[in-house]
Structure formats: C-alpha cells, structure tokens
C-alpha cells in the first residue's frame, strides 16, 4: 500500500490543530475565576490543607509532648471529609463530565454540591432499585460505593465510565463521607467508625492496620489504648508493650506493628482497641471512637487473627 503525501498532510493537520482554549482566567474546571464561590473551588495557590468551616469546631488539641506515633511530616492530617471537598476534587471535575444537567445518565446529577447531595443521599439507584445510591452510615450498602469500587455485582460499568478508576485514597474518602452519615455540610454528627484495613504476618513481625472515618486526636492515643494478646495452644499471653508500636498516618490510619519473635509458637493474635477496659480514644471532635460500629460513641474494636 503506498501512502500518499495527502494522508501525511491530513494526519499532520489533525494532530497539529490545537484549538483548545488558553484557559486564561479560568479555574481547573474551566469556570471563570471571578464567579467562583470561595468555598467550593479553592484557587490553585490555596494550600490544600485549608479546612472548610465545619459545623462543630474541632476540640482543643492539647499539645502532645510525646505522641505514640510519628506525625506525618509535611502533610496535615485530614479531619474528615466534607461533601464540598468531594465535589471539588471528584464529583465536579471527573463525574460531572457526564453526570450533568437534566440529561444526566440514570438521572444522576453530580454537577453541584447541592445536586450531588439531592441526587445521591437516600435516593434509590435506578440500575439496582434494591440499593440506595448513598445509604448514610453504610458505605458497603451504597450503590455509589459499589460503582466506584467496580464490584462484580454492579450493573453496567465501573465509574468513572471509560476512564482510569478513582485512586484508592479517593474511594476511601467517599467511603468515609458515607460512613460519617453523608452530611450535607461539615463532617457530620455521626460517630467515628473503624475498619480493619490490613493484616500481614511474617517470620518475626506482624502488622495490623485500622482506618478511621475521621481523624483521631493523637494526644489520646497511647500503647494503653490497645491490648495485644498472643494465643498459644493452651494459654494466652498479654504482649509486653515493648513488643508493639503504633503509627498514626495522616490522622486517619493507625498501623500496629508487632514483634512476634518472643511469641514464636503463638497460633493467633487477639487485638482489642478502644476497649473501655483499657483506655478509649477520641476523634478530633473530642468524641469517643465508635469501635463496634453500632452508631453510638464508644465500643471496642476486636479482632482475632491467625498467625
């Protein structure tokens, strides 16, 4: 086949044609800057650490001399995610490319904070009417979460359609917002919940991770807030506090690192966190962590894991 110069010309023409706008005077969604409302679209220079006003002021944080875990250096911990943040970072720039206006797919509009709230929270999914798009407090029962996680039970495609999936961190933020009761503003009144996020055990070391739906108050965290017991064939040993360490990452993830060498023949490890028997943990609002996910503050998070 001989490719005539005309094709090369055509090709060059198409590829060279750059008629995209210069973007001058626009924000990252192509909206004129002066018409933005300050809260929803922070200007490019604004540090991402700025918190939008929350309903309740964060509890006074007593300066903690000796936090049990290292604070992450530069990154300020997120206290809990707001719908405004999800709108600015995810729903607006990614989803509203399609979920916009009155012709939005499945009648789901995600083109403003208000619409996202009205069309998601407590609204039945039109693809799977047995589920709500967002069931406040219940990320695992929310079709929105299923769609962005790409679960095999969903109808149609993983969202965002035809694009790279959302990052794990972004999916986690959506889950947190739902877990916190899917509040219209602020990070909500619901209790702060815990999910086990990782467990790995090796020759001499085991690591257990927990994720919180809101940031913890690091000052309330100490080795006494966890009780680690190793379970042997016919007895149980309480682990020496020197044999484990806690690391709080970005306020919302706690990593428990255990030295299993002294407990080499243990079959399993029993982990209790936020137990009223030991010491409870507060979230950044000064409320006790809801360890047993019963929507009431307080309660123990308990796991028995095979080694």
């Amino acid at each position: 086949m001989n490719v005539k110069p005309i094709y090369i010309l055509l090709l060059a023409l198409v590829l060279a044609a750059c008629d995209a706008g210069s973007g001058e005077g626009l924000d990252e969604n192509g909206i004129p800057l002066e018409s933005n409302n300050e809260e929803e679209t922070p200007s490019e220079e604004a540090p991402p650490t700025e918190e939008p006003p929350t309903e309740e002021p964060p509890a006074e944080e007593p300066p903690s001399e000796e936090p049990p875990g290292e604070e992450p250096p530069a990154e300020e911990p997120a206290d809990g995610v707001t719908l405004a943040e999800l709108q600015t970072d995810i729903f607006g720039p990614i989803c509203a490319q399609c979920h916009v206006g009155s012709g939005a797919p499945q009648g789901l509009r995600l083109d403003s904070e208000e619409n996202s709230y009205n069309f998601l929270v407590d609204q039945p999914s039109s693809e799977d009417s047995s589920l709500l798009r967002v069931d406040p407090g219940n990320p695992d029962n929310s079709y929105l979460v299923h769609k962005v996680e790409g679960r095999s039970s969903i109808i149609g495609s993983r969202m965002p359609l035809g694009q790279d999936p959302l990052s794990d961190a972004d999916i986690q933020r959506i889950r947190d917002w739902v877990a916190n009761g899917a509040p219209r503003t602020g990070t909500g009144d619901a209790s702060t919940t815990v999910t086990a996020s990782a467990f790995e055990s090796g020759e001499t070391k085991a690591v257990f991770g927990m994720h919180f739906s809101r940031a913890l108050d690091p000052a309330t965290l100490s080795k006494n807030t966890v009780l680690v017991q190793f379970i042997f064939e016919d007895f149980t040993l309480v682990a020496n506090t020197d044999d484990y360490d806690l690391h709080l990452v970005a306020g919302q993830d706690l990593i428990l690192e255990m030295n299993t060498e002294p407990y080499a023949s243990a079959k399993a490890v029993d982990i209790r966190f936020n137990s009223p028997l030991t010491s409870t943990v507060l979230d950044f609002r000064g409320r006790v962590l809801d360890g047993d996910a019963n929507d009431i503050d307080g309660g123990e998070q308990h796991h028995v894991l095979d080694l």
Partner: peptide
C-alpha cells in the same frame, strides 16, 4: 465549547 459565553475554555479531540 462547554460554555459559549466564557472565553478560552474550548476543548478538542483528534484521532487517526
């Protein structure tokens, strides 16, 4: 052109 009354916001796609 996602909004005709706004300048500098046009998008384009081309393919071979």
């Amino acid at each position: 052109d996602p909004e005709s009354n706004t300048d500098n916001n046009e998008r384009a796609r081309s393919s071979v």
